[in-house]
Write a protein that binds this DNA or RNA. Sequence first.
DNA 1: ATAATAACCTGAGGGC
DNA 2: TGCCCTCAGGTTATTA
Length: 268
Amino acid sequence: MPELPEVETTCRGIQSIIGCTLEHVIVRQKQLRWPVSQEIPSLKNIRILEVARRAKYILIYTTKGAFIIHLGMSGRLCVISNKLAPEKHDHLDFILNNGTLLRYTDPRRFGAVLWTKDEPLNFSLLAKLGPEPLSDAFNGQYLLQRAQNKKTTIKQLIMDQNIVVGIGNIYANEALFTANILPIRQSNTLTLAECKKLVLKIQTILKQAILQGGTTLRDFLSADGKPGYFSQKLFVYGREDEKCLCGTPLNSIRVGQRATVYCPSCQK
DNA sequence: ATAATAACCTGAGGGC
DNA sequence: TGCCCTCAGGTTATTA
């Protein structure tokens, strides 16, 4: 489900938990990407102070520490009535004091629910992440510098969370299309002008997707159960058997084991 | 040190 | 209907 716009949508959708007291957490399945932190089942009556996003991680700050949550490929968070019975893949419930609970669902279990008493931004998984794509730190000069001396393709570079965070397979395909750059270009062949354009297109596409509530391909639903509408605006992703707007049939290849679609005419 | 690729899971969809 | 194969918004661990 989740690239930056979907995680941001989820984050905004669960803001109602701020100020609530977390009475306790029910863990039904602790076997996720990493085991659910051992301390979590014994947490009792702590106040939720803030909900924030860093990269594709959702951070829930409390008076005693912070939860670090990643949605993996198929994870979901939603705030619902505490009377709704859990289903097969509902792995954790965060029981709140106002009759609701925050439920974590994840069929493929590639996500993670971790706990730290310290500042979560210093947590090992978060410490070495690249800049946020919508921040000033992510600009053409920066991307050009990071693209030097690298043999990887430009698509793999922008999906590398140590270079820039938040971009996954959908938005990498879309941004490269709108920037007119071939996904398989070796990153060190990009000019400054191309880097600037790519940064701008990445930012534009992410902002648009956030406004639309993210992209729903199969099963993404925001915290209030609504789908995202950005899939209506995808130019190349998932359109491998169709033609580009210019009339040229789109090409479909694999780059770093990920489905990659591009227009051989519009992208150079 | 850097770059490919294998691995972690479940479910959906297509072909036979 | 069922079985087998491939694929899926991600990221780390292992190998070359």
